[in-house]
Simulated scan of single mutants.
Amino acid sequence: MTATSPSIQFFAGIYEELSNVSLRREVRTGKRIVMMKFAQLKAIEGFNSFTKQSLNSLLLTDEEGEINVTPSSTRFIFGGDEGDELQGVECKFEVEREDHWERFMRFMHRYAEANGMEYGEK
Rank of each mutant, 00 (worst) to 15 (best):
50 F>P: 00
43 A>H: 02
81 D>M: 08
100 H>M: 03
81 D>W: 02
50 F>A: 10
45 E>Q: 14
36 M>W: 11
104 F>M: 15
93 F>P: 09
117 M>S: 05
82 E>K: 13
57 S>D: 03
17 E>F: 05
120 G>S: 15
79 G>T: 09
16 E>G: 09
19 S>A: 09
23 L>T: 12
66 E>R: 10
41 L>Q: 03
111 Y>H: 12
25 R>V: 05
33 I>R: 15
105 M>T: 10
52 K>R: 14
42 K>E: 10
104 F>R: 06
111 Y>Q: 06
30 G>D: 06
46 G>N: 14
76 F>I: 05
61 T>D: 04
59 L>M: 12
74 T>G: 05
45 E>F: 03
106 R>N: 10
111 Y>T: 04
63 E>C: 01
68 N>K: 10
108 M>Y: 12
11 F>H: 13
61 T>N: 09
98 E>A: 01
77 I>A: 06
112 A>M: 11
43 A>C: 12
25 R>N: 04
116 G>D: 15
16 E>P: 01
22 S>M: 07
48 N>G: 13
98 E>K: 06
101 W>Y: 15
111 Y>A: 06
46 G>F: 05
67 I>G: 01
26 E>M: 07
78 F>N: 08
25 R>C: 02
25 R>K: 15
86 L>H: 08
21 V>G: 03
99 D>N: 11
18 L>T: 05
20 N>D: 12
42 K>C: 02
116 G>K: 15
31 K>M: 01
103 R>T: 09
76 F>A: 06
29 T>N: 10
11 F>M: 12
101 W>S: 10
41 L>E: 00
21 V>N: 01
18 L>Y: 05
18 L>W: 05
91 C>R: 11
70 T>R: 13
86 L>Q: 07
24 R>L: 00
87 Q>N: 08
65 G>E: 04
64 E>I: 02
104 F>N: 04
89 V>Y: 03
18 L>E: 03
92 K>H: 09
66 E>W: 05
46 G>C: 03
54 S>R: 12
104 F>G: 03
114 A>W: 08
34 V>P: 00
46 G>Y: 09
29 T>R: 12
55 L>E: 05
16 E>K: 07
80 G>L: 07
41 L>T: 06
21 V>M: 11
66 E>A: 07
81 D>Q: 12
21 V>K: 01
101 W>T: 09
50 F>R: 15
42 K>R: 12
20 N>A: 14
103 R>L: 10
92 K>L: 11
76 F>T: 04
72 S>A: 07
13 G>F: 01
73 S>M: 07
73 S>T: 10
42 K>I: 02
11 F>Y: 15
104 F>A: 07
114 A>N: 09
62 D>R: 02
21 V>F: 03
